[in-house]
Amino acid sequence: MPGINTSSLPDIIFMLLFFFMVSTTMREVTVRVKQRMPEATEVQKLEKKSLVSFIYIGEPKNTKLFGTKSRIQLNDVFASVDDIPEFIAKEREARDEADRKFITTSLKVDGNTKMGIVTDVKQELRKSGAFKINYSTRKKVERRSR
């Protein structure tokens, strides 16, 4: 009995490889706050991931070290509200001149967070001129009960 010809096996694997290479988005920040997003039905997809900057807000994962009070995380570190203008300026600096007005700020906020901190962040964003925001939510599967 002749053996199975395996010479096309690399090609098949390569095909899979390319698929994953293309669909991969590398996560460059380690999220240090709890992120259990609220659910919503009327969600839109965030287009153009390269034009989105993220602000994470929530209870720190390491509660022993950082306590249970909700914190803001910008890039890899905890920050305060006052750091936001600088963060926005840097994010703008990193993008192409032509793309700057399309930058969306995605607020990834834990559902248990109080609105106070979110409002502070929003006020700061308004002052910095980052008007386009996106409240990150999970998509809820709609049950048509009514």
Binding site: L17, T24, V43, Q44, R126
Partner: peptide, 29 residues
């Protein structure tokens, strides 16, 4: 095939397929 497999596994592990969804709003100046 083995080399390709190795790469494949690397990308499989690092891939995050989640699409970011949310409610988009515009803040007033």
């Amino acid at each position: 095939a083995d080399i390709a497999f190795l790469l494949l596994i690397f990308f499989l592990v690092t891939t995050t397929m989640d699409v970011d969804t949310g409610i988009t709003r515009k803040l007033p100046p």
